[in-house]
């Protein structure tokens, strides 16, 4: 079966400095794919190239068999959407209105939200548990709430592919697990999730496949168990890793 996302020889540079170099990879539909690597490895850049927020310098990306450069921006935003790391806003915008912005590409210049749009927004807020604060202002939310709202906004785009840039960074453990459980629910609903993530423990626990990036190059991409090997982690992160199992069967990772 043709993978949903196919990357071939992707390179990206900023002002002559290469950030991504000759990346080739593919991602199957309906799975959670993790992108891991040290700071500056090119994880966020890869995500921004995939949804064409930044245009790739060379190489080819296909989404569901279509070259993503040939897809109109409005159509593209209905196929793939990015949840950024943080959404700092200087204006007081209601959570409901913020989430509703995800419908932008579905609406005409003078259209207002119709009953179908409202239904979709309702569902997204229900799934993400953001209903209780729909009337609060976006700049008054905590980090965890803000992340849930951003995911809800991504859901209302109805894009089958959701990219998340460090969705759990700066969150406490409870909110980290809440976000990861939500992503698992979305996977069960048929969404394809691709996220950059620093927390190796969560990556190993929740991702179906892992992509390891190092200095803008692909180190390896494989099923999580295969990719998450001590030697790979040592090579990419320059740390030793040790695994231990608690009496309750929970596996713990130790770094040195």
């Amino acid at each position: 079966m043709e993978p949903l996302i196919n990357i071939k020889n992707l390179s990206y540079a900023i002002g002559g400095t290469p950030i991504l170099h000759d990346i080739s990879a593919s991602f199957a539909a309906g799975q959670i794919h993790g992108v891991i690597g040290p700071n500056g490895a090119g994880k966020s850049t890869l995500l921004r190239n995939l949804c064409r927020i930044w245009e790739p310098c060379s190489g080819r990306i296909t989404l569901d068999g279509r070259d993503h450069r040939a897809i109109r921006r409005r159509d593209l935003s209905q196929m793939i959407t990015l949840v950024p790391q943080e959404s700092r806003v200087d204006f007081s915008i209601r959570v409901f209105d913020f989430i509703a912005m995800g419908r932008h590409s579905h609406l005409g210049r003078f259209s207002w939200l119709g009953s179908d749009d409202l239904e979709i927004i309702d569902q997204a807020m229900a799934v993400t548990g953001t209903l209780p604060f729909k009337d609060r202002f976006i700049n008054q939310l905590s980090g965890g709430e803000s992340q849930l709202v951003s995911i809800a906004r991504a859901l209302v785009t109805e894009a089958p592919i959701i990219l998340l840039d460090e969705p759990t960074s700066a969150l406490d453990i409870q909110h980290k697990l809440q976000i990861m459980d939500l992503l698992t629910t979305l996977r069960a609903q048929g969404k394809t999730i691709l996220m950059s993530i620093h927390d190796l423990d969560l990556a190993r626990r929740y991702c179906d496949t892992l992509m390891l990036l190092q200095d803008g190059q692909l180190y390896c991409q494989a099923a999580t168990e295969e990719a998450f090997q001590t030697e790979h982690i040592r090579q990419v992160f320059h740390v030793d890793i040790e695994e231990s199992e608690t009496p309750h069967g929970v596996s713990l990772l130790f770094y040195a």
Partner: peptide, 18 residues
């Protein structure tokens, strides 16, 4: 409507098809 998203971030505006 484009301005509504532009005032959040240009990156997000591009992400939503602006």
């Amino acid at each position: 409507r484009d301005l509504n998203i532009l005032m959040i971030s240009e990156e997000q505006a591009r992400n939503f098809g602006v």
